[in-house]
């Protein structure tokens, strides 16, 4: 990957990486750290990364960084007190169902959450998600099915779905 391709990747994918991180971490600063760490790691290996694979590599790296942050924050107990800050530049559709869905998303295990986010936000196929999350496609499919059931159950529990 050339420097130009790398900089193009910054333009194209940093928003998605930031969104991916902030949906997991619910904290702007932590999400920003993840984005910077992700691109720093990708830059270190940019000569070995093909330009066509950079998006997958970015999300894989971001996912690993997110899990590291979650483990670290949970150990220190901060994650429980993290205020649900949303990025100032976020533009969540003002639909109740979506807001509740965001909350429901946070009840999912991280791997299911990642699979759903990559599927719904980034439009990845099962194979691509499997590549990013280092699973196989069947596992991803199962996780997504389980996640859908959990989301539906959550929304139904709070009487959003009638």
């Amino acid at each position: 990957m050339t420097v130009k391709e790398y900089n193009n990747a910054v333009d194209i994918y940093s928003d998605g990486i930031y969104r991916f991180a902030i949906k997991h971490l619910r904290n702007e600063m932590l999400a920003d750290d993840v984005v910077q760490e992700t691109f720093a790691k990708v830059w270190q290996k940019h000569e070995d990364i093909q330009g066509s694979k950079v998006k997958s590599y970015l999300f894989t790296t971001a996912y690993t960084s997110i899990l590291d942050v979650i483990k670290k924050e949970k150990r220190s107990g901060d994650m429980e007190n993290v205020s649900q800050q949303q990025a100032g530049s976020s533009d969540i559709p003002n639909f109740d169902i979506q807001q509740h869905l965001e909350q429901a998303l946070n009840t999912l295990p991280e791997v299911q959450k990642s699979a759903v986010l990559l599927r719904d936000y980034e439009g990845y196929s099962y194979d691509e998600i499997a590549d990013i999350l280092e699973l196989n496609a069947s596992q991803v499919k199962v996780y997504i099915f389980r996640a859908r059931k959990s989301l539906k159950a959550y929304l139904k529990r709070i009487d959003i779905l009638v």
């Binding site: 910054v10 984005v35 691109f39 990025a87 976020s90 969540i92 869905l101 859908r148």
Partner: peptide, 21 residues
């Protein structure tokens, strides 16, 4: 209804991530 609609997020520090040749 359990499908997330992609929210628009803009990462505002892209300049810090870019590299120079």
């Amino acid at each position: 209804q359990v499908y997330l609609k992609p929210a628009t997020f803009t990462y505002t520090h892209k300049g810090k991530l870019k590299r120079r040749s």
